[in-house]
Design a protein around this nucleic acid. Sequence first.
DNA 1: AGCGCAGTTGCATAATTGTTCAAGTCGCAA
DNA 2: TTGCGACTTGAACAATTATGCAACTGCGCT
Lengths: 111, 111
Amino acid sequence: MPVPLYQAKADFFRTLGHPARIRVLELLQEGPLPVRDLLAQIDIEASSLSQQLAILRRAGVVSAEREGSTVVYSLATPELADLLDAVRRILTEMLVDQGELLAELRAEAHG
Amino acid sequence: MPVPLYQAKADFFRTLGHPARIRVLELLQEGPLPVRDLLAQIDIEASSLSQQLAILRRAGVVSAEREGSTVVYSLATPELADLLDAVRRILTEMLVDQGELLAELRAEAHG
DNA sequence: AGCGCAGTTGCATAATTGTTCAAGTCGCAA
DNA sequence: TTGCGACTTGAACAATTATGCAACTGCGCT
């Protein structure tokens, strides 16, 4: 009996539900990067980054390849970019709505 | 100082990271529904569903409106459908990849 | 072989989330 | 105004997830 699809989706979203993991995916959108570069951009301890990378790996969202003494990560699929785009659109829309609400509240206070 | 965008994205994904919440969003894609109907489709206690709905409400993902003695929920934005589509595509691709891997493993075993 | 650098893993503890049940609110109808 | 159905809320306890530190692996250099 397969995992229900809604469960798989929830699991997937949960693996994206951490700021460091989001940053990793955003950085990898530009192309593969070694851990060292990720570490330079994300303010977090090396071991903690490793843990987050492991979570992304286990979920199949990124893949790692050893190159000499460094490890290079890349997105498992470019479709992830679409997803991040969709979220960006939703968040900006939500922020706009909040802005409008805020404007209304101000108008009310001054009216 | 505003919440960093990657933090907002992570929070957003986390609010989607629960099977019941995913089911709610999927059902609401078709249009607004009263709690009673959601409850009929999702196998979960009423109070638990309420908790999950509250989480979605607080995140601004759905909105609720009282109509007589029932409460009707709807998606805050239709853009959510795009997001769910993107996830579906990603998951199916990931499953296909796994299928291919499985096929390879079988070929190896019998070869 | 012995070192040091780049990452990773294990594990203990702290912090968040989820689940359940009891109690509470709101509208409606008797 | 009492009662009931439809939801929601609060709070306690269980389960997951996050964090930080120490130990460990793999590679390249000397």
